[in-house]
């Protein structure tokens, strides 16, 4: 099939709270089946807005002013509510940022992990239980029976994130939106979780949109990267190319600003003000709004 899984075309949006300030400026990007795409940018760059738009959960303060999001050729933004809720949670799922707040403290893991199976696939209790055990096994949780009976507070952060990953992949979705899923975790756990997402993604043939501000994370997991600044796509390309031969001065400045594990004493290079001046000139922003 030639049709991409997701095609975002000329997507523009404004914030109604911020006096109509643009949050997305003519964003276009395509995502192929099974591709892992990094959405990178500083806070306010628009990466989370794109993720929320894909999930159909844009806050009421953000208004789309133009463009399309096509998922398998169908425009998500123009879709009736009912059809949209059929797709969400089944074809498109979410791995949230903070495993502390993404699991209901008052419900057992089994109930939360099987919600989607029961509501979207109509599985019975026993069948959902079996599937949940399989899923936990797949995300390498030992003792899955005990974990299913546990409440979230009895589990570690890494364990909870594994459960959320299992939950995101439970229905064999076509697209998983991962919203900075490792930011709230220890560095050592981060690595395992990245590897796990990559493995699950390959096993299920799922495309992943990986929202992050960390180029180091991108280098580990993403096939392609889209770099955003102030709601505009600055650079887009294969990860290896972009990290070794950045085309835009902002990209190279960001790479230089990242920590270098081979030279820990080199010190971090902040992105020079001149780069931001150039970015603003290109995009057409009068002053820097942070």
């Amino acid at each position: 099939m030639t049709q991409p899984l997701v095609a975002i075309e000329g997507l523009s949006a404004i914030s109604t709270r911020d006096g109509g300030a643009p949050v997305l400026r003519d964003v276009s990007l395509t995502l192929e089946k099974g591709e892992v795409r990094g959405l990178v940018g500083e806070s306010g760059a628009g990466k989370s807005t794109i993720a929320k738009a894909l999930l159909g959960i844009l806050p009421s303060t953000v208004k789309v002013t133009g463009g399309f999001i096509r998922f398998e050729g169908r425009d998500l933004l123009a879709m009736p509510r009912r059809e949209l809720s059929d797709i969400m949670g089944r074809d498109i799922t979410l791995i949230p940022q903070d495993p502390q707040t993404a699991l209901n403290p008052a419900r057992r893991i089994e109930a939360q992990l099987t919600d989607g199976l029961r509501l979207k696939l109509g599985m019975g209790k026993g069948q959902a239980h079996e599937r949940a055990l399989q899923l936990l096994d797949e995300v390498q949780i030992r003792n899955p029976k005990r974990v299913l009976a546990a409440y979230p507070h009895e589990l570690s952060g890494g364990m909870r994130q594994r459960i959320l990953i299992a939950s995101a992949f439970a229905l064999n979705p076509k697209l998983v939106v991962a919203d900075e899923p490792t930011t709230a975790l220890d560095v050592t756990v981060q690595k395992e979780i990245l590897r796990l997402i990559r493995r699950m993604q390959e096993a299920h043939g799922t495309a992943v949109i990986f929202v992050t501000h960390d180029l180091g994370v991108v280098a580990k997991i993403c096939d392609r990267v889209t770099l955003l600044y102030a709601g505009k796509v600055i650079e887009d390309g294969a990860t290896a190319d972009m990290l070794t031969q950045p085309k835009h001065i902002y990209t190279s400045a960001l790479i230089a600003a990242g920590p270098r594990y081979d030279r820990p004493n080199a010190g971090l290079e902040p992105v020079p003000e001149a780069v931001f001046r150039q970015l603003r000139a290109e995009i057409g922003i009068a002053e820097r709004r942070v």
Partner: peptide
């Protein structure tokens, strides 16, 4: 507005 409610909503609750 907690994430777990958002997730449950996405799952079709």
């Amino acid at each position: 507005v907690q994430d777990y409610v958002l997730l449950a909503r996405l799952k079709g609750m």
